[in-house]
Design a binder for these strands. Sequence first.
DNA 1: CACCTTGGTGGAAGCGCTCTCACACTTTCG
DNA 2: CGAAAGTGTGAGAGCGCTTCCACCAAGGTG
Lengths: 345, 345
Amino acid sequence: MDRLNEAMANGGASATLDDVARVAGVSRATASRAINGGNRVSPAAQSAVDDAVRRLGYSPNPAARSLVRRRTDSVAVVVPEPDERVFSDPFFARTLRGVTEVLSARDLQLVLLLARPGQEEARMLRYLRNRHVDGALVVSHHRSDLAGQLADLALPSVFVGRPWGSSDRVSYVDTDNVAGGQDATRVLVERGCRRIGTIAGPEDMTAGLDRLEGWRRALAEAGLAADAVEHGDFTEDSGERAAAALLARHPDLDGLVVASDLMAAGALRHLKAQGVAVPDQLAIVGYDDLGVAERTEPGLTTVAHPVREMAAQATRLLLDQVDGGTAGTPMRVVFPPTIVRRGSA
Amino acid sequence: MDRLNEAMANGGASATLDDVARVAGVSRATASRAINGGNRVSPAAQSAVDDAVRRLGYSPNPAARSLVRRRTDSVAVVVPEPDERVFSDPFFARTLRGVTEVLSARDLQLVLLLARPGQEEARMLRYLRNRHVDGALVVSHHRSDLAGQLADLALPSVFVGRPWGSSDRVSYVDTDNVAGGQDATRVLVERGCRRIGTIAGPEDMTAGLDRLEGWRRALAEAGLAADAVEHGDFTEDSGERAAAALLARHPDLDGLVVASDLMAAGALRHLKAQGVAVPDQLAIVGYDDLGVAERTEPGLTTVAHPVREMAAQATRLLLDQVDGGTAGTPMRVVFPPTIVRRGSA
DNA sequence: CACCTTGGTGGAAGCGCTCTCACACTTTCG
DNA sequence: CGAAAGTGTGAGAGCGCTTCCACCAAGGTG
């Protein structure tokens, strides 16, 4: 019983399937079956094994298991973004919630891979190449052919937000950001604004570019000038700076389309400091509607997109690939954005 | 060459050490040695292996490796907290930065384990018991004997912030929160405040209780009443609510010690809405100094603690345990807090 | 010149698990 | 009532890797 006593130390971490089988008086095969769902196991054997497991505090060695199963039962959420932003933008929190929802129902572990562009990107790719995880969900990604690289890896992967580059080689879930930008702008046009500027997202993200394109189209269709553009990086501070720059160059602005609520909140801060009345002197439309928009003063009229559902959907697509054992044919799901009206426009 | 061609698909994910050995014309043992640091390997063999690795795009199977090494080369950061807070409080971002700093220098992977108290806690413990990771860093933890449970598991683990319960059985890194609370209160006393209330942290966290105790001691030593207490949960909203409740009950307050800057920002919001002048009518001292304090209006006088360094230190303690192959003797490191003066007091 | 070192190597044993397969031993049905 | 089908079981072959050990060839000692 030496072996068994030893096995019971360490909270049972060192008990092996062999120990369980021996204690239960069955073969390793039967013990394994009993532990994994109990297919084709007699009630007697099942309860003997259950007992042994309990007594030994046995818990299976995941390395051994995934070695033979070729499954790690974990998926990575890749965020190619400095942690500052990840931990301040409600977008990520909401996204992660959508992911965990789906993942925990299947008892899969989430591995968060924060990788600022640079050397960490290589590390991240190595991690994925080594198949530490069964699949990858890429969340906010900047110019780079990550999509192509993942496709080359043949690792199940889904992007949240249309990727740069080889967007035809991977699956992704997105909202129609062009339509969103357009709708936001139309709100201002219909309100009577004639001089509409925009604080756009980063130029190295598709969401940033698409929303900007929507703004352009709406202005073109209204016959208005589309020359007041400033780019931010989706953070509140960048929104404040951009607003300052924009108003310095175009003091006659009476409408502002902002590519994220966080940036809009920054812009609002600047406007308040300058004593500009919102929406009377300058009307503002934001983007996201993840809580920030209801807390600003005045509340932000904004473009809502179903972030949690998108993330959940992306995760489901990923699990389909994982289950199919293939990176499969690229799928895309695009959600429509909707306008939510509050005080700012 | 069939096998090898197949091995080269999938970005080399399916090439095995055997393939490498065959291509390099050496044994599996030599190939393994060459790949892992090249001890006792001739230059010729080394370069043959390097070549083969490159040509095959080989990358080792982590499951197989950790099966025999009994190491996963990853550590968990456990956050027993709803994601809302994790992703809004700068404390976590800063902590994570400290952890990654140390971890990436050693090429260890961080696995973020978000586990709201409840069923997810069981899942989290199971994950740790199964030894999916080499060690655990517990970050913000509420009443519960997690410390004892981890000690029972004999898994290397370190707490950031003194744990509840069996704090003598695990290592931890902390700041002297009693001293911090006391110093914060003294700032107000010295300023001439005679009626000092506090918005304390949650009653199920040691940091919350310790800071409250500091407040009590400082008031006792000044001979002032210590009866104006309201608890928050470290979020901005809870700070706003607590301030409202506190001022309703004690309209004569002229000083306020708040257990986190985020809550202080919330309190400030309430005071502004009520037209209370800070610091003239009511002086405020916050806690943390992680960026929020410099952005409020007025800036917050606050208690600073070295969060990044604490996390880094905790990670180093953890790695020592991991390297020693033992949960070792409990160590504790306590950092002193310092006062940072701004406009609010 | 017999004697150890020393450095480089490959054979082979395992790490802890899953899963195929063959072998009983029932039960069911024409 | 014999054949076919179904049920529970264990032996054993791996999964891909590290590492112990035995071995061989050189080169350095007395």
